[in-house]
Design a protein around this nucleic acid. Structure first.
Lengths: 136, 136
DNA sequence: CGGGAAGCTAACATCGATGTCAGGTTCAGG
DNA sequence: CCTGAACCTGACATCGATGTTAGCTTCCCG
């Protein structure tokens, strides 16, 4: 049995495996204040079950193109981060998030257009005699 | 009058201004083989009118997240690059482009999801707590 | 208790387009 | 001819999350 408690929890390897995020990144998240971890007497990180969801959440925000600093500000305002509803964001933060949302909108628009361009390139590249001929 | 010819063309400053791309980037494009330029006797770059469209095209492809190396392979296969329809892509290139297209699709999906997440965060942050406390 | 797996910290590398600076050359109007 | 604007090359910096390595410590099963 573990020395401290039976619910001590996950170590970093398991969290990495279960989230698909590298140990390196998990340590980085902690360094940026995004992910807390208790420590074993020996200094090994111990995560609660909720850490899995939290990491997933962090990943989503990273995928949105947010900077870790921004994520840092957001996290305390999220619902299920630790179970506690936590604080309500300052109007300033809300404004910043709205700006981020608009940035994402713009990025999506750009990508949609990019996809069209790429489709055209593919069509042209595939050989495009206006007289019907299907490409494989 | 210019020494060589009257249609000598744009210098880099004008191209930069007209495309909104920095001179630095234009030189980089040339270095990557994406954008050709004739040279003045003194070594200054001279661009034809078509360069404007070409740069715009390059920008679109960069916006799609393609690497300069990939763009390099694509460009000869584009329609209006120089007026000449040019070559038809190898099947290998078409395959690569299709993969890129799928990558863009994935990115778009991710961003759509990210936007939802962000919207939820914004909603929560703006004040969603069942215990009433109105936010502006 | 022994040893191999798993963790730890710290530091450096990466990728890629673009910014920026320095020091020199060219261009073109007056 | 002179001069200031425009251009040239080359080199180094940036941003930020992540990879990688090195050297050491801790954990835990047998």
């Amino acid at each position: 049995m573990r020395h401290g408690d039976g619910v001590g929890g996950m170590r970093i390897g398991e969290l990495a495996r279960r989230t698909g995020v590298s140990e390196r990144s998990l340590r980085y998240y902690e360094q940026q204040g995004l992910l807390a971890a208790r420590r074993t007497e020996g200094g090994h990180r111990e995560y609660p079950e909720a850490a899995v969801d939290r990491v997933v959440h962090i990943q989503e925000l990273f995928a949105a193109g947010l900077h870790s600093r921004t994520i840092y500000k957001i996290l305390p305002c999220m619902r299920d981060s630790d179970g506690s509803p936590n604080e309500v964001a300052t109007p300033l933060l809300v404004e910043e998030l709205t700006a981020e949302r608009e940035r994402i909108d713009r990025t999506i628009s750009d990508l949609l257009r990019s996809r069209e361009v790429l489709d055209e390139v593919i069509a042209t590249a595939s050989g495009q005699p206006p007289s019907s001929s299907e490409a494989a």
